[in-house]
């Protein structure tokens, strides 16, 4: 989604500064898993605000519906059934899945198309589909398996954190619609503070493992979770210590400019070899010698 912006922090495949005259405070969405009832109102609000409709799929026997993120479903509720040691203590963990809006976004790092992915000063990572070439490198770069390429137009899509709403001072559509207040939105600072108070409250209620998921491996995220057991994010399908894969860092790191210089050096080296050493001509003596043989 594109809006003319003067507060761009990073732009994919761009080596010069981006328009950054305007500065905005960092925002964050805080999802309190302990308060989510899995009603999927946020999924509906997301479709409505962004005006995208997924194809009707089929139910796979769980409450996961649709079963995965798609180019038209930018957020989905994932239901995890957790059986604890006490057989009567069965838990349903529900996570609202979608883009984490990483401070260090692997998608943006991997993207080869200039300006197809931008990160605003407020921390939102946005895809600009008009610049997208459809290569899928963002999927390769993302530590959270979020972007999806549309089968219809071969462009990549994902949650925009309602960058268009946030730009005009509104909260994201999912936040506005959540009936239990499980999704909150504000400055990153404020949300971190709010998460802290909630976690203290949960600790007081005996949920001693409760904590905030704001993984430092990706520089922190602009979508954070309050979870009941922060030591085990795997229980709700999140990586324990996410970060940009070392393979992606090698692929997109200093090796690229170095290889570019190396190629230029080989080409220029060849040119200067010619200019300094001269061509390797067939020797005149050999030619004359063969001519003489012919005459004989």
């Amino acid at each position: 989604m594109a809006l003319q912006s003067l507060d761009i922090k990073q732009r994919s495949a761009t080596t010069t500064p981006s328009p950054s005259m305007r500065q905005t405070p960092e925002v964050a969405k805080l999802i309190d898993i302990s308060r989510c009832i899995g009603c999927k109102a946020c999924q509906v609000a997301c479709m409505e605000w962004n005006d995208v409709r997924d194809e009707i799929g089929s139910v796979d026997g769980t409450y996961n519906n649709p079963t995965d993120l798609t180019a038209a479903s930018w957020t989905v509720m994932r239901f995890y059934e957790k059986e604890n040691a006490d057989p009567f203590d069965f838990e349903w963990l529900i996570r609202k899945d979608g883009c984490m809006h990483c401070a260090d976004p692997g998608c943006l790092k991997a993207c080869p198309a200039p300006g197809a992915i931008v990160q605003y000063a407020n921390g939102i990572v946005d895809f600009h589909q008009e610049n997208c070439i459809g290569c899928g490198y963002c999927i390769t770069g993302c530590p959270f398996n979020v972007p999806r390429i549309s089968k219809k137009d071969s462009k990549a899509y994902k949650c925009t954190l309602c960058s268009d709403r946030v730009a005009v001072g509104l909260e994201p559509a999912c936040v506005k619609t959540c009936p239990t207040g499980a999704i909150m939105f504000g400055s990153k600072e404020q949300m971190t503070f709010q998460a802290g108070s909630r976690i203290t409250e949960l600790h007081g209620r005996g949920l001693t493992k409760a904590g905030l998921y704001d993984p430092p491996g990706v520089g922190g995220t602009h979508v954070m979770y309050v979870m009941k057991d922060v030591g085990d994010p795997g229980a709700i399908g999140l990586p324990t210590d996410p970060g940009i894969s070392p393979l992606v860092s090698v692929w997109k790191g200093v090796s690229k400019p170095l290889a570019t210089f190396a190629l230029a050096a080989v080409a220029l080296g060849s040119l200067f070899h010619y200019v300094t050493k001269g061509p390797n001509e067939v020797s005149k003596e050999l030619e004359d010698e063969l001519d003489k043989e012919d005459v004989k």
Partner: peptide
């Protein structure tokens, strides 16, 4: 995705090597 990441590194590295050899 692990294979794709490996593929991306190998493809880019080998392509650079091949282009250098072809220049030569």
């Amino acid at each position: 995705v692990g294979l794709v990441r490996l593929g991306a590194v190998v493809h880019a590295a080998v392509a650079a090597i091949m282009i250098a050899f072809i220049i030569v």
